[in-house]
Nucleic acid binder design. Structure first.
Lengths: 332, 332
DNA sequence: CTGAAAGCGCTAACAC
DNA sequence: GTGTTAGCGCTTTCAG
């Protein structure tokens, strides 16, 4: 492996000139520049970024903490992050944490030991169950919640589920069920708030029996739906708001298996708008999050923070979109 | 940020002893070890891995080239890779290439410039359309094909699609359609070979009209299915083998939209067994690839290669599993 | 078992 | 515009 010194020798200039030709070409004469480039070609020089980064005290890497990489929504956010990072010369280190705090801790060490310059957290900030924010760690929350105590890019979750609930109410539904995430998950809390606001404004009383807890997986959605299936038909919700599309897909499966028709016996609304939601039977009415945009915005924010630039909005709220498909229909 | 020198000073030993205490504790006396650890605690020392890696000429990172991170199957493979990498102290740099060769090239630079020690390629080796193998680049192919000219972890694609085809034949199907990937994609070629072998052994003549080209996305599967939908019912295949689950899901959507029942009018078999395939209507018969295992095996192989250890099998073939669900049924 | 010292390849003052 | 030089924080001979 050739180094900057070899290039300097062949080009007949000093190593400083080579260095400058590479990182600040405008400060070098045209003649030297050419000599350097020819020499680089000749000795097949590839800069050792490990050395450069070490010298600059920067890793030019960011780490992204993902609860579950196999979740399409998260994967799409990561795509957005990666796109922006790559454009700015940063690498993306994957931290699939499987929702284990201990694993988040492991990955944070990458930042503490200078192997990464900052971190994007995809798990929402959770009081008493979070490793961020942390001194000396530059971090941004993506797809998080209100009141995150560090910079954050997100949608208005409460407003989104309120919108969906209001739509169901406008369709004549009065018994509206919810499939939530874990009870203390911040997304569950924010989204439940929107639901409660909407039914309360419509004069519908809140009823515990309308709530079934899942954990954002298809399997847990299927399970949660059983809670409703066990109810007498005249008490069962005529519509269900699921806090993500995966659980909605699981729920549809459960209802079909019990000869409860979607949407004729029960309407279902999802959350996220992952790609497969267009293809389910029936196609899923859902709240579309701009996943890739969220990722891009979060990455841009983090890079600014890392590079010491000013960040105007530290709670950046992107618009969601409510997408009506076939899984929701007026109450019979 | 404190460094090894601060620790040495506080501990009253030399920097060499501190270094040894950290990377080869067994060569240091118990007494020194304790002094060093106390000092580390006291000055809040975090090793600068950038410096260590630079010195060692190793990045302790690998890069993974993924055509599409939002594809569940790939994401699951990456999970496996990441799990093994993390256990061995390596980071995983994400390279979502969006199937663009130019982007693969960008990410390979990470290896050439010492920011990563090796690469795992998830796109199958494609003659005349591949940047690997390459001198001085340690690489492993995951989920690839036969005859990959560098180390490879995969299933037997031809055998898998042969198994599926034989199953359809055993159900009495004679007109068996295929939804392929792009015609020159190596997966398409291998899997088509298995199909042709199976029908030929059963005395069924190969017929071009039974082949529809997709590109491994739901949308392209839906589109490809239209080719069959346009055919008169008595010429239309009674069963279809789709080269991945996504396209099968798209195809089911297209058939339903045209009142062609799955599986009663047409059986459908997918490939990969992604999670959602259990939840589609009907649930998908499919060839299950051990995605996470493939990722783990590929990572183990790459790490051995990086560390100069011997690798016995450079073409490691894992077993697939044929999973029968509701989307396939005997011909009527 | 320990310490002194020589760099790894590069950047960034500083002087010319 | 260019060259000289002093490190960045660590590992690793080599002596002792």
């Amino acid at each position: 492996m050739s180094n900057i010194r070899d290039v300097a020798k062949v080009a007949g200039v000093s190593i400083a000139t080579v260095s400058r030709a590479l990182s600040a070409p405008e400060t070098v004469s045209k003649a030297s520049l050419k000599k350097v480039h020819d020499a680089i070609e000749q000795v097949q020089y590839k800069p050792n970024m490990l050395a450069r980064n070490f010298r600059r005290h920067r890793a030019f890497n960011i780490v992204v903490l993902v609860p579950n990489m196999a979740n399409t929504f998260f994967a799409t956010v990561v795509r957005g992050i990666e796109d922006v990072a790559q454009q700015h010369g940063y690498g993306v280190l994957l931290g699939d944490t499987r929702d284990v705090l201990q694993r988040e801790e492991e990955y944070l060490k990458l930042v503490e030991t200078s192997q990464a310059d900052g971190v994007i957290q995809l798990r929402p900030h959770w009081e008493g169950n979070s490793i961020l924010p942390r001194d000396n760690i530059v971090a941004v929350s993506a797809c998080g919640c209100e009141n995150t105590p560090y910079p954050c890019v997100r949608i208005d979750n409460a407003e989104a589920s309120k919108t969906a609930t209001e739509y169901l109410i406008s369709l004549g539904h009065k018994r509206i069920g919810v499939i939530t995430g874990l009870a203390d998950n911040p997304h569950t809390i924010d989204r439940l708030k929107g639901y409660r606001d909407a039914i309360s404004e419509a004069g519908i009383e809140y009823n515990d029996m309308m709530i079934a807890e899942g954990e954002f997986t298809m399997w847990s959605g299927l399970n949660a739906a059983r809670h409703f299936i066990r109810m007498p038909a005249d008490e069962r919700p005529t519509a269900i708001l699921s806090m993500n599309d995966e659980m909605a897909i699981g729920a549809i499966k459960a209802f079909r298996a019990n000869k409860i028709d979607v949407p004729n016996d029960v309407s279902i609304i999802g959350f996220d708008d992952i790609e497969v939601s267009r293809y389910t039977e029936p196609a899923l009415t859902t709240i579309a999050q701009p996943a890739e945009q969220i990722g891009k915005a979060a990455a841009n924010m983090l890079l600014k923070l890392i590079e010491g630039k000013e960040v105007r909005q530290t709670d950046y709220v992107l618009p969601f979109e409510f997408v009506v498909r076939a899984s929701s229909t007026p109450v019979k």
